[in-house]
């Protein structure tokens, strides 16, 4: 049994890192908003989904106009990524302005309900725009970056088999790493990043220090949503087919990743996302083997939620978070 697991391990790692990178960037959006507003932004998964749709729509449009063939594919992708992230960024700001800001002083339950409302509204909005335009709400993007590569793990040791990946996986991982490093630099080294950390720590005191709290919150939503939207495009390029309901479950798992890494902790979210992605791929590949065929790969979602529950019971502050005691 162990030999079989080892055999598939390289492929599991490659797939797991690709999936984990997506979880990590979405988890960033959750964790930033939670750190600053103490609100689970349920709509974040939908922003990711909208980003995927905007990206695919642009790619289809560009193919239709013949631009995609005219310019190098990587340039086209960068263009799409930038435009999509700006659009979804403003969408995030708008959502905050319309649905969360009026409720900032009401009970948390009410804000959560509003967030769920936004999430459902967005799902259906995207569904009917796509269905109206295309007659079908499941979209398949133009295939890009499909060249297969393999890493010859078998040359290291015969107990491994080779791992295969596409160019898009490589692009995905590189883009995610750039986004993470950029965000980390922004939050830790710039003036606006410092303002964000100050607002997350204590909103009232920050406003006394002449920080424009509303603007900082808007900025947080902009960055989180822009990153989420860009990840949506990468997701669509990597996995091909998208539908308006991908955001919810994926968002849920990304939230799990955020909790795993310690909510409110940006580096924790990155680590948590990667861990969850690898664990999930491992479960999908090996659950059947490990349980003697009782549980199959269809239980991989259950596995992710089980991780969430276990973390919440034993280490609710997450792997990298600090335990906070509530002051009365």
């Amino acid at each position: 049994m162990l030999a079989e697991i080892l055999q598939s391990l390289p492929q599991v790692l490659v797939d797991g890192i690709a999936l984990g990178a997506i979880y990590a960037v979405i988890a960033l959006g959750y964790t930033m908003v939670y750190g600053i507003l103490e609100l689970i932004n349920f709509a974040h998964g939908e922003i990711f989904m909208t980003g995927a749709f905007i990206g695919v729509a642009m790619l289809i449009l560009m193919t239709g106009m013949g631009w995609l063939a005219a310019m190098p594919a990587i340039l086209a992708l960068i263009l799409v990524l930038v435009v999509t992230s700006i659009l979804t960024g403003f969408m995030g700001v708008g959502i905050e302005r319309m649905a969360y800001r009026p409720l900032r002083n009401s009970p948390k339950l009410i804000t959560l309900i509003s967030a769920i409302g936004v999430s459902f509204l967005l799902q259906d909005l995207v569904r009917f725009i796509t269905e109206y335009k295309r007659g079908n709400y499941i979209l398949t993007g133009p295939s890009m970056f499909n060249e297969q590569f393999s890493i010859k793990f078998s040359s290291i040791s015969s107990s491994f088999s080779d791992a295969f990946f596409k160019t898009s996986t490589l692009i995905l991982i590189i883009a995610v790493v750039i986004m993470m490093i950029g965000l980390d630099f922004f939050v830790n080294k710039t003036k606006w990043g410092m303002a964000m950390r100050a607002v997350a720590q204590d909103r009232e005191t920050a406003s006394l220090m002449s920080i424009n709290v509303n603007r900082v919150i808007s900025l947080t939503f902009f960055i989180g949503s822009a990153l989420g939207g860009a990840t949506g495009v990468l997701f669509a390029v990597q996995y091909g087919t998208i539908d308006p309901y991908i955001g919810f479950i994926l968002g849920l798992k990304a939230f799990t990743a955020a909790v795993l890494g310690g909510i409110g902790n940006i580096r924790g979210a990155m680590a948590g996302g990667l861990m969850l992605g690898i664990l999930e791929m491992f479960a999908a590949a090996n659950l059947q083997l490990l349980t003697g065929g009782i549980f199959g790969a269809e239980y991989k979602d259950v596995f992710a939620f089980a991780i969430l529950i276990v973390v919440l019971i034993f280490k609710p502050e997450g792997l990298f978070g600090k335990a906070v005691t509530e002051k009365v």
Binding site: L103, I113, I116, G117, V118, F120, D124
Partner: peptide, 17 residues
Amino acid sequence: AKMQRFIFGAILIIFAI
């Protein structure tokens, strides 16, 4: 008949606010 999610989402937001 397909717009349930839209309607429910709108109800949730409007009533919450």
